[in-house]
């Protein structure tokens, strides 16, 4: 056997690859397989029934609505923030980037708590809201706020490094050729960043639909009204309706799989760097 100085021999390689794959299968793949296997434990019939209950359908609808509101909000923010940060020089830029990342280092439960402290019955502006008959906590607006907070950095975080790398030469060329600011953005910047943007939207959406801790604190768990899919999974599970819980969970797992496939395709085809994305 020939030993090379800067690599391991093939036997060591195979052992290490085997170990790594075994750990991955054990820690990551097995839980994923378990979701689908438990969901279909009693066949397709009970699975379909569990997904078709009015409560499950209401949860699916609410989850889609929440994502449809919070993802676009964070897309607009992400584009504005990365435009300001990557195309201009100003003091305090690195502080601004750190602040944008802040929601990542806050526990999901605490993310929910802050909105309860603001808008809850005993919160800072809770009494004022109650006097005007406005409901935020234990209602849909609270869930949207908590979701927007949790998914806040996703789009900006993907766009900032990408646009930093691309620089501003293209935009300057367009402007000097007589394009307006908007024309430059639509015809130069947006095509340049579209795949990175899509990548950010995918991650943002997956988290928005799957968020549990933060939403659990602000939702109030009212069936058919403020129950999102992850919360519905919890309720069914705690009622020992395992087929039901895993059936709804398997829909969320499918969403995760679709996200992973789309993300990988984007990475291979457009050579997008996957930083330490969350």
């Amino acid at each position: 056997m020939k030993l090379r100085a800067t690599s391991e021999d093939r036997v060591t390689q195979i052992v290490l690859i085997g170990l790594a794959l075994a750990f991955l299968a054990f820690f990551l793949l097995l839980p994923l397989v378990a979701v689908f296997s438990e969901a279909l434990a009693q066949g397709v019939g009970p699975f379909m029934d569990a997904v078709h209950t009015p409560d499950a359908l209401a949860a699916i609808r609410l989850t889609l609505i929440i994502a449809a509101i919070s993802v676009p909000l964070n897309v607009v923010f992400g584009i504005a923030a990365s435009w300001a940060i990557t195309k201009f020089q100003f003091p305090g830029k690195s502080l601004l980037i750190t602040l944008i990342d802040l929601p990542f280092s806050v526990s999901p439960v605490v993310s929910g708590l802050i909105f309860v402290l603001l808008f809850g019955a005993n919160g800072l502006i809770g009494p004022w809201l109650a006097a005007h008959d406005l409901k935020i906590i234990f209602a849909v607006p609270g869930i949207v706020l908590a979701t927007v907070f949790i998914t806040f950095p996703f789009v900006a975080r993907e766009l900032i490094p990408l646009m930093m790398e691309q620089g501003k030469d293209d935009e300057e060329a367009a402007l000097s050729l007589g394009a307006s600011g908007w024309q430059t953005f639509w015809h130069v910047t947006l095509p340049n960043i579209r795949w990175g943007l899509l990548y950010g939207v995918l991650l943002c959406n997956a988290r928005a639909m799957g968020e549990f801790g933060a939403v659990s604190v602000v939702s109030g768990h009212i069936r058919g009204e403020t129950n999102t899919m992850p919360l519905h999974v919890e309720i069914l599970y705690n009622e020992y309706d395992f087929v039901g819980a895993f059936a709804v969970a398997s829909l969320l797992a499918l969403l995760a799989l679709v996200t992973l496939v789309a993300k990988s395709v984007l990475e291979w085809r457009f050579d997008l760097h996957s930083g330490a994305s969350h």
Binding site: E38, G210, F212, Y237, A245
Partner: peptide
């Protein structure tokens, strides 16, 4: 990347 994409409650019950 699965743990980034899989909702935490789903991972929990699995």
């Amino acid at each position: 990347d699965l743990p980034f994409a899989l909702p935490t409650a789903v991972a929990g019950i699995a």
